[in-house]
Design a binder for these strands. Structure first.
Length: 678
DNA sequence: GTAGGGTTAG
């Protein structure tokens, strides 16, 4: 697009003069009285949209368009004539806003640019402000044309060459368009080109918005930093708040991750200007922070809000309480509860749910029950009716500590009070509780009761019952029940199969277990637990070749065996005197970055001791740094020569296997008999 | 599209 010397061909000028009539002036007045926008918004449109037809043209505009459109390289004489006409029309006395309005009505950017050229190449030339306004309309028109990005860039350079300062609207439009067109490196360029006094809040907001959308976090933060200073000339406003807090949560892909600390810092700076994230945004942040283990930042965030008296609702506190509970920060939970109270924020049913759940999971069921009664009686600052979740939490808590009858009674109370009926989960808690206690009949009874109540069982109901039967030696009944449910349309899942497979292994029906394992593989993608169940079942049955096959398959399926799995294999190979294979496993697990633990060493120590290879056994003992109860028992049993047996026994009495060790090898730990090692 | 407890199974 050239701006040089395109003087109009004036073949039609005479016609223009001829058709000119006094109404033209009136049209001008009409134009000029169009509502002058105190705050004009650029009307950038996607370049794909067709140029809108010019608004109902006044005769003057129609004529102007005609002249400008029909031009090509004409003589300067013709040009002068046009200028003469423009002058006679009073165009040089128009305000910049009026010029803008006129230019907007031209059909395209190129025509408008020619208009601009005419205006500036003749005297008297409108002042820079007026020309800038005309250029603003040129930008607007270009933004609606195809390939607007490149065109705008070209026009931007042109305006620089002409030394025409950008208007705020031009800059805003350019920033928007370059942002949409992903011309990231142009955003700051435009902003910096704008005179400092014109870099107002609105243009900054658009800039920040586009920078964030385009991932330029650091540039955005730098612009924001200026707006958030206490003496900022153009301080952040409500729009800035919305753009930034929405933008940051949408998770545009930034050039780098914004740390939680930075977010807290930003919220704090906004807060100093009385601008805060809304309660929902805040709560989402707190939840997110807690989920990624950034509880401390979540805490800081909420406290920044509290310190600056930002708007706060109970949900944000609930989110943080949940995070603290999951991270075991119970003291902070209490502190936060107290702060809530001081701030006058009342707990709701969710807050109570968190507290009751916490107490139940800590097995402090009596305190949970006490709180339950308190909330109903309005002794927590407000009366709160417990909902089904709170009931379920309590019932589960009671069942988990073996207070099955009390759990059952609470369920009966729900039914009789009739305002909060038992759900599937309610029955599931009870059924699982009775199953684990071996009261299978009671569980089945409850299962029928839920049917009568019209409460639908789900896969968890089925799995609790199947698992209960399997764990109590009734794998056959479990399978029957499982099939029956399937016929009724309640399909099991991999968990059901895991229970059944384990159940059949436990009653030594190895083939049936493996048959189910194969059946399961056809329907579901096996997970690590079901592989582990099959591996340990086959190992206990002494079928190490099969166990190794499943072990290999598990690895092929992409599961990295954990140390427990390796230990089972090593143990199985030792038991079947395949020490080479055991060594192979040991090497492999070390290669995979796992250190042999007590269980591994105990297995090996036991093997070598039993086989009279005391030298290797010694080596193992030295390598194992933390002898535990089991190590000492093995030593006592097999190596009386290592130390004095009595001394050892005394030492042993002070030992307990840690919970974590126990949970790693449920089928081997928690018992002190050595049979498993032999 | 409106957060926050959450319940239960290997």
């Amino acid at each position: 697009m050239s701006i040089t010397s395109t003087a109009p061909k004036c073949s039609r000028l005479l016609r223009l003069l001829r058709i000119q009539n006094p109404n033209c002036r009136a049209s001008f007045i009409h134009l000029a009285t169009e509502k002058p926008s105190a705050h004009r918004l650029p009307k950038a449109l996607p370049s794909s949209s067709p140029a809108p037809p010019p608004p109902s043209c006044s005769p003057f505009i129609a004529q102007l368009i005609e002249v400008l459109k029909s031009e090509d390289n004409g003589s300067s004489e013709e040009n002068e004539k046009l200028v003469e006409i423009l002058t006679s029309l009073g165009i040089h006395s128009l305000s910049s806003d009026q010029l803008l309005q006129i230019t907007r009505r031209l059909p395209d950017a190129s025509t408008a640019l020619n208009f601009l050229q005419h205006l500036r190449s003749n005297s008297p030339c409108p002042d820079d402000d007026s020309l800038s306004s005309v250029f603003e309309a040129v930008f607007e028109l270009a933004s609606r044309e195809p390939n607007s990005g490149d065109k705008l860039m070209e026009l931007f350079n042109t305006s620089k060459q002409l030394n025409l300062p950008l208007t705020v609207c031009s800059a805003t439009l350019l920033i928007r368009c370059f942002g949409k067109g992903k011309m990231v490196d142009k955003l700051m360029l435009v902003f910096n080109e704008l005179e400092p006094r014109k870099r107002d809040c609105d243009v900054r907001n658009v800039l920040v918005d586009e920078l964030l959308r385009n991932g330029c976090l650091d540039d955005a933060l730098q612009v924001l930093d200026e707006m958030l200073q206490s003496n900022a000339q153009f301080p952040a406003n409500e729009n800035t708040r919305r753009i930034v807090f929405d933008g940051l949560f949408k998770g545009h892909k930034y050039e780098r991750r914004m740390s939680e600390k930075e977010i807290v810092e930003l919220v704090s700076k906004f807060g100093a200007h009385g601008l805060f994230p809304d309660s929902i945004r805040l709560t989402k942040w707190i939840t997110k922070f807690c989920r990624i283990g950034e509880c401390d930042s979540a805490w800081d965030l909420l406290h920044v809000m509290m310190d600056l008296d930002g708007p706060l609702e109970v949900a944000s506190f609930n989110a943080l309480l949940t995070g603290l509970e999951k991270n075991g920060q119970f003291k902070k939970m209490n502190l936060l509860m107290k702060e809530m109270k001081d701030k006058g924020i009342l707990p709701n049913v969710v807050t109570m749910g968190i507290s009751i759940n916490h107490l139940c999971k800590s097995r402090r069921v009596d305190e949970a029950l006490e709180l339950f009664e308190k909330m109903r009686a309005g002794e927590v600052g407000v009366t709160i009716e417990p909902d089904v979740i709170i009931h379920n939490t309590l019932i589960d808590g009671l069942c988990k500590v073996g207070r099955l009858e009390e759990g059952l009674a609470l369920m009966r109370r729900m039914k009789s009070e009739n305002n909060c009926l038992p759900s599937t989960a309610t029955y599931n808690c009870l059924i699982d509780g009775f199953c684990k206690a071996g009261e299978l009949e009671k569980s089945v009874e409850l299962f029928h009761e839920m049917g009568k109540d019209g409460v639908q069982p789900n896969v968890i109901t089925v799995n609790s019952l199947v698992d209960g039967m399997c764990k109590h030696g009734r794998a056959g009944s479990a399978l029957e029940f499982f099939k029956e449910m399937k016929e009724k349309g309640l399909e099991g899942n991999a968990v059901s199969y895991t229970a059944l497979i384990g159940g059949f292994f436990a009653v030594n029906k190895i083939n049936k277990a493996m048959e189910l394992f194969d059946e399961m593989r056809e329907k579901f993608t096996p997970d690590a637990v079901v592989y582990y169940t099959a591996i340990s079942g086959l190992t206990l049955a002494g079928r190490m070749d099969d166990a190794y096959l499943v072990f290999s398959e598990m690895r092929k399926a992409g599961f990295q065996p954990d140390i427990g799995c390796y230990n089972v294999m090593i143990n199985g190979f030792c038991k079947t005197n395949k020490i080479d294979k055991a060594h192979e496993m040991l090497k492999e697990m070390t290669r995979a970055g796992m250190k042999p633990d007590n269980f591994t060493y105990n297995t090996l120590i036991s093997y070598f001791s039993k086989n009279g290879d005391l030298k290797t056994a010694h080596k193992m003992i030295e390598e194992a740094c933390n002898p535990d109860y089991m190590t000492l028992e093995i030593l006592t049993e097999w190596l009386p020569g290592v130390g004095e047996a009595d001394k050892l026994r005394k030492f042993v009495q002070g030992y307990k296997i840690s919970d974590s060790t126990r949970s790693c090898y449920p089928q081997f730990c928690g018992q002190s008999d050595l049979s498993k090692y032999r």
